[in-house]
């Protein structure tokens, strides 16, 4: 703002800089609430868990539940599906991950995954494709009976949401 180099102008410079700096802090402080209001609000956060009763799901059946507005696939796998998923060598996978890591020990038949294609967010269709899993109609990605991607363009496996078994037939997602 000021350019001359006399001692007086140094004091003036300091005043200008201090005022400008405090003003800038104020603007930043004012912007924050306007940014923060876009975050998920308290009522949305409160809905972040979903309970699902597994009892009515028959062997071989895939049920879609909803958690945080997203589809959750719950697949009661037949023993042959589990075997097929565990027989695949990890090196053949696009996103290598063992089936054991994707289910809860002792509940190996239950596969719980977020039903959103990792390519661009479409919902894959169950029991379709060449791997007894899912087929995404948008761009042709295919997933196996462990929800792992087997044919691109999707880069990653269907993610497993955080969930716990509250009893043998009940899970809480989230």
């Amino acid at each position: 703002m000021a350019h001359a180099e006399t001692p007086q102008t140094t004091r003036r410079d300091f005043l200008y800089i201090a005022t400008g700096a405090v003003g800038a802090v104020g603007v930043a402080g004012m912007v924050w609430p306007f940014v923060a209001q876009l975050q998920p609000d308290a009522s949305v956060l409160a809905l972040s868990t979903t309970e699902v009763d597994l009892a009515p799901i028959a062997e071989g059946q895939i049920v879609t539940a909803q958690w945080r507005g997203k589809p959750i696939f719950i697949f009661n796998r037949a023993p042959k599906d589990v075997e097929a998923a565990r027989a695949v060598p990890l090196k053949d996978l696009i996103d290598p991950q063992s089936d054991q890591d994707r289910v809860k020990a002792g509940h190996d038949n239950w596969l719980v995954v977020i039903g959103i294609c990792t390519h661009l967010g479409c919902v894959p269709i169950g029991h379709q494709g060449n791997y007894d899993g899912w087929f995404c109609p948008c761009h042709g990605s295919q997933y196996d009976s462990s929800g792992r991607v087997r044919v691109g363009p999707a880069p990653l496996n269907l993610p497993v949401p955080p969930y716990t078994f509250t009893s043998d037939t009940k899970i809480t997602i989230g």
Partner: peptide
């Protein structure tokens, strides 16, 4: 009331 209670800084705005 949802704005006043649940939205972050909703009461302020």
């Amino acid at each position: 009331e949802h704005i006043m209670r649940d939205v972050d800084f909703g009461w302020l705005i």
